[in-house]
């Protein structure tokens, strides 16, 4: 035979043999090592580009898919896939999950700087991340620090620092989770806005009432007064009321729970500014959650 022909045959043959070998091994392994997984996760993984670039902040496409399916991440994080991918994921999960709601960030703390007691002077790096490392910077180890890390990362200008407290404009919030990640104390969480107004617990202090009164003038004392009229929607966990957002709240008058609260730790946050607070809401809190405050005016 001709030398060139033999070389081509040899090259093609060897590659073919390697390919067949690998295909056999992988095919066998696929059956032998089969582990059942959630079909939804598989479906989302297949929609994702599979480049495993890590741009979404997760380690690979599969892990991101899992997070999306479990509701821990929004469907819009995939940069390489872009809008198409996000739409497809939403479509896939929408069919299986039913209705979807916008998730918005809320701050679980309502204490302005003066209302947080036992503060020590701090002259270090003016960021929450650094201040959080200083023990005893303020009495409450759960509450807002007020250095505005969340404000810095918010690309939509939805966060204002008002009197040393982060206040989120839910109309501007897109639910990108940047602030949730930035907050070193983890007091910003994402909440599904199923209705125009959503009940939010504005305290994160897990201590007993006596200790809370010691460090804060507005924090939750864990009296559980709000749980009774709520028909099981609000539960006390670690001395804090926790609102179960998965439960259907229609037919339950949550305003009663808010009225019962002796400490102003339960508020309604509404999607639209004109539809403000229900009656009985303390006037001061309303001012805190108003959204048109001029930053410069407040900062002096």
């Amino acid at each position: 035979m001709d030398n060139t022909l033999i070389t081509i045959l040899l090259a093609a043959g060897i590659l073919l043999v390697i390919a067949v070998l690998m295909a056999l091994i992988l095919g066998w392994a696929n059956i032998a090592f089969h582990v059942p997984t959630d079909p939804k996760i598989t479906a989302v993984t297949e929609i994702l580009p599979g480049a495993n670039c890590g741009g979404c902040g997760f380690v690979g496409c599969a892990e991101y898919a899992e997070a999306v399916v479990k509701g821990k991440a929004p469907a819009t994080l995939c940069g390489p896939g872009g809008q198409d991918t996000a739409n497809k994921i939403a479509e896939t999960l929408g069919l299986s999950l039913g209705e979807t709601w916008p998730f918005k960030a809320v701050v679980h703390c309502a204490a302005t700087r003066e209302q947080r007691l036992k503060q020590t002077p701090y002259y270090g790096e003016q960021t929450c991340a650094a201040a959080n490392l200083v023990p005893g910077i303020q009495g409450c180890v759960y509450g807002c620090l007020g250095y505005g890390d969340c404000q810095d990362v918010c690309e939509y200008g939805a966060i204002d620092m008002v009197d040393g407290l982060a206040v989120i404009d839910v109309d501007k919030c897109t639910g990108c989770r940047a602030c949730e990640k930035a907050c070193p104390r983890g007091i910003i969480t994402m909440i599904p806005f199923k209705t125009e107004e959503v009940l939010v617990v504005t305290c994160s202090n897990k201590d007993k009432g006596v200790l809370v009164k010691d460090v804060c003038t507005v924090g939750c004392i864990g009296c559980s007064a709000c749980t009774k009229p709520s028909d099981g929607l609000i539960e006390m966990i670690n001395d804090l009321p926790v609102v179960n957002y998965d439960k259907d709240s229609s037919g339950i008058d949550l305003h009663k729970s808010v009225e019962k609260c002796p400490r102003e730790s339960l508020v309604f946050i509404g999607l639209h500014k004109d539809k403000k607070k229900p009656k009985g809401e303390p006037e001061r809190i309303e001012a805190n959650f108003a959204t048109t405050i001029d930053q410069t005016e407040w900062r002096g």
Partner: peptide, 10 residues
């Protein structure tokens, strides 16, 4: 090189 794979994919 990730560029090429990502362009092929995207």
């Amino acid at each position: 090189n990730c560029i090429i794979i990502s362009r092929c994919e995207a």
